[in-house]
Every structure is written in C-alpha cells, then in structure tokens.
Amino acid sequence: MINIGCHLSISKGFYKAAQEALSIDANTFQFFTRNPRGGSAKALDIEDIKKSNEFMKQNNFAHILAHAPYTMNLCSSKPDIREFAKTMLKNDLERLKHIPNSLYNFHPGSHTGQGVEKSIEQIIHALNETITKDTDTWILLETMSGKGTEIGRSLEEIKQIIDKVEYTKIGLCLDSCHLYSSGYDIVNNLNGVIEEIDYMIGIDKVKAVHLNDSKHELGSNKDRHELIGDGKIGLDAIVNIITHPKLSHIPFILETPNDVKGHGEEIKMLKDKLIKT
C-alpha cells in the first residue's frame, strides 16, 4: 500500500486534518508545527490529538510529518536568530511528545555568509544542546536544492551533521524537487542515487519523502516545485520513486503548488498509474 498525503492546515485541529486527508484517499499528512513565516504556536488540544490518533489507527495511517517553520535557522550568522531557532526546536520537540505518530522535519539552515564549515558545526552544536534524553521523535534533515547559502545541498553536508549528532533517531527527508535541482539525477539514475544515499548515510535513515515535480532542469539549484507530471522530473520518474523497494514503505508528502482538492486529484492519478504499472 502506498503511504501518500499532502500538507494540511491544523488550524481546526488534528482530527479535522486527519478527516480531510482521508477524504482525498490519503493516509498521511504534513503540518507546520507553528507559523511557518514567524514563530508563534497555538496551544495543543490534547483531547483532539487523542481523537485524531484513534482515527488514524482505525484508518491505517502511516506516520505524519511535522514541518518546522522556515524561520528556524540554526546556523544564521546572527546569534539572536540562532537562539530563537534553538528555542523553537526545543519547544517543538516537547510538543511532539503528545503526537506519538509524528516525524519532525526541518531545513538544515542557511549560513548567511559565514561559510559552510562553521554553519555545519553550529547545526551540530544546536542539535546536541537541544535534544534531551527523553526525546523520542525521529528528527529529519531535509535535502535542499542548493539555492543561496543553503546547507544540505549535498549528501556530504548532511552526512557531516548526522555523523556528529549524538541522538540516534536523526535521519533524512528526501525532497524529489530539491534532489533533482541539486544535481542528483533521480530521473535517469534513481538506483544510483539510492545507492549513494545508502552508502553515505544509510537508507534506513530515510523516513519520509517530499514528492514534488520540478519547474527547472537537473542541477539548476532552484527551488521551484511543480505539479506531478508537469515538470522536468515527470510522472514516470515520480512513480519509480514511490515504487522503489527501498522507499515504498515510507510516507510520501505532496508539496506541489495545489490546493487540497488538487492534491486529491494527484493522489488519484498516482494510484491509477500504479495499478496500470
């Protein structure tokens, strides 16, 4: 069974989000832990979360993905922004203890001019300082497209972080658009890319995939998502990702430029394609 969903709002609660996911034939979803362009977070409704967890168990949901805000930059050149990021990270991990079926995904950060090596050290330090002994959530670094001063544009950069984080549940969220834009040819050499991930980091560390087509060519370093089948990656290559034996069991989250109804249509298209494959 394919585990697929999309990004949904939790403004009306997790139970409503889970119901909305099921209405488009999804069995997972992604949500922002707080305001993605700011940092404020609503109080958790524990009863709503319990209700949604039971609903998801009854309907065979896979893990859901909690996405950190874009403002969380653990390697900014500005100390106050780094401290703000660590505060958000610590608070998010505390809140996710109430959502046991969740994975936590974040963008490694942008070095904003201070260089890759120093920034990687800051990310490692922040994670080791913030993660506590009672943290039990998988924390996933997202593969990035390489625009601007982003960290995580290569498996080598991500490996450096994972290797030096003391917490063992530290892994990877692949983004198909980002991988392709950063130069990994998942269209013509998917097996080779998977083998490289396995060699560099370990395929068992890959816990989720952001499933997006790309508006731009291989190696463009541009982060522009496209509807499935309308971009440079294409429907067949996306289906190959979903059905790859080393990935097929994990959650796939659509982040294409679509609304919920449109994501439902993409999910139907992908499932129909799988039946015909």
Rank of each mutant, 00 (worst) to 15 (best):
I158A: 04
K232Q: 12
L218H: 14
Y167M: 00
T168Q: 07
T71S: 11
E83D: 15
D213H: 08
T168V: 02
D230Q: 13
P79A: 03
V193N: 08
K232L: 11
L127Y: 01
K222N: 13
E217V: 15
C173H: 10
A62K: 11
A21F: 03
K78P: 06
I158L: 13
Y167I: 00
I275W: 07
R224F: 14
Q160K: 13
I241Y: 11
D48R: 12
L96R: 04
G262M: 00
K169F: 06
T143G: 04
A43D: 12
L174Y: 05
Q19L: 08
I170T: 11
R95M: 02
H249V: 03
N105S: 15
I197F: 07
S176G: 01
S23L: 02
G146R: 06
Q160D: 10
I250R: 00
I228W: 12
S23F: 04
N128V: 04
I64D: 11
L235E: 05
K90W: 09
Q30H: 00
G183H: 10
I194D: 01
T28N: 07
L141Y: 06
P100K: 12
K246W: 15
D48P: 07
P79G: 00
G13D: 07
L227C: 11
W138M: 03
L22D: 05
I2R: 05
G171I: 10
A126T: 03
V260C: 08
G183D: 12
T256H: 09
E266V: 14
N27L: 07
M269L: 15
N53C: 07
G262E: 14
G202H: 13
K12C: 04
I49N: 05
T112I: 06
T149E: 12
D198P: 02
T149I: 05
I124G: 09
N35R: 06
N240Q: 14
K90T: 09
H67F: 11
E166C: 00
R224S: 05
N212E: 02
T137S: 09
S9I: 08
I81K: 12
S176C: 00
A66T: 01
D213T: 04
D223W: 14
H107I: 01
G234R: 12
M144V: 05
K51A: 00
C173D: 07
F61C: 02
A17K: 00
E150D: 11
S52P: 06
T277F: 10
K273G: 00
L96D: 05
G229Q: 13
A68L: 06
D48K: 14
T33S: 10
H98S: 11
I253P: 07
K57M: 01
G5V: 05
V209L: 04
I267V: 08
M1D: 09
K215L: 13
L22F: 10
F252E: 04
L227R: 13
R37H: 13
C6G: 01
I10S: 04
E94Q: 13
L127A: 08
K118Q: 15
K133Q: 15
E20H: 06
S181Y: 07
I267W: 11
